[in-house]
Design a protein around this nucleic acid. Structure first.
Lengths: 213, 213
DNA sequence: CGTGAGTTTGAAGGGAATCAAGACTAGTGG
DNA sequence: CCACTAGTCTTGATTCCCTTCAAACTCACG
């Protein structure tokens, strides 16, 4: 049952579970759910982009993950959401009641496998994040994010950045000023171009991969 | 199927899957498997303690997780191990062939559920780790680790620290000097005592939880 | 064209890293 | 049993990367 997990019997960018559920639109910066809410649903991004984050009492914020079309989020081990989910752009999400997903997973082994696989992949992404935050420099982190975004949104070297500089900083464990300075420096070095704030071009992929570590 | 996941129908400190498998002893600092090895087995700590870590080309190391009796580790989404696992103390681990676990999960729904639940919990632990590395100070990180160890090894305020200062540093995203200085300072503040290097007493649990954030 | 949020840039400061000894501890062998 | 030794840990001095504080700039939007 685990071995089949290794085969991609579904395309993660399309509905992976073959279920239907109500779709909800969220405006930019609107909350999908908050830390502490009852976790009755699992969500899938249909279009747009979502950030999941946690905030310490004194306001320090850490973004766990960015979610794009096809990604799912909101699955918890306990009864409550441990993170807050917010739309970064105008976004449509599909809501799947936990009970419905459970039934489906129970009836259809390939759904259970897909769900499990997605969770393990999420764990591995989180471990990459840990390595980055624990041991990489500001420059390595910023480059790493750019490469990750390019790989996931699949526009080649052309990046439409859906998040603010503050979001980038809170994902990378840096300040907004450091992110901005680092991007400026990368542009000066000729490895990226920043035609507009929300549009970044990766000029030299090879050099970037080297910088990312 | 997901809802039952919330109930603990097994004690994680004991064999959670009810399988048997060969047990292997590893001496201190011995490798259980290495990054890049084929991932044919999942492992469970029977006694002792294990660290899983990743290393950048230039030698920077980040420890993902410490594993103690009952914990499982080594499950991957792909064919290869992405981390290296090493015994921190003399350790016994049970090896379960991936195929055996797959069959078991396919036949026994409660095994599949347990496996899934453990994975989600691992993901949440990793997210806690991300928050710590991204947004917490050296002191908050050290205190957080001490509390986590106390909670998991369950000796009350008495901690038998199985890892070296270097391991602590590589888990916390700090240097060995900073870890040492921070522990010394915590002792000076009276919230912990350090009778020996590998033995730490948490004197003031309330103050510590406050310091951890 | 004015307004303001978001971003960039500059200057100064600080927390952790680095560099460098020194102290302790656990093995080792006499 | 105890010197000897290597590895680990602690402590001190200095450096540096990133943060903080501050201000100017950009651009979308009324």
């Amino acid at each position: 049952m685990l071995s089949p997990l290794r085969q991609t019997d579904l395309t993660p960018t399309v509905a992976p579970f073959g279920f239907t559920g109500p779709c909800l639109r969220h405006a930019r910066d609107e909350e999908v759910f908050a830390e502490g809410d009852t976790a009755d649903y699992v969500y899938q991004v249909i279009s747009g982009s979502v950030r999941t984050c946690r905030t310490l009492r004194d306001g320090r914020r850490q973004i766990d993950e960015f979610h794009f079309a096809g990604d799912y989020f909101g699955l918890e081990a306990g009864e409550l959401h441990r993170v807050t989910a917010e739309a970064m752009t105008d976004t449509t999400v599909r809501m799947v009641r936990l009970g419905v997903l459970s039934d489906l997973a129970a009836r259809k082994p390939h759904v259970a496998r897909a769900l499990f696989r997605l969770t393990v992949e999420g764990l591995q992404r989180s471990q990459d994040h840990v390595l980055m935050l624990g041991r990489k420099t500001a420059r390595e982190r910023v480059v790493g994010l750019l490469i990750d975004l390019a790989d996931r949104t699949g526009g080649g070297g052309e990046l439409d950045v859906p998040m603010s500089r503050q979001d980038m900083a809170d994902y990378l464990g840096l300040t907004i000023e450091t992110v901005s300075r680092t991007l400026t420096q990368l542009q000066a070095d000729g490895v990226i171009a920043i035609p507009t704030t929300r549009h970044i071009v990766l000029c030299d992929g090879v050099a970037l991969r080297r910088l990312a570590n």
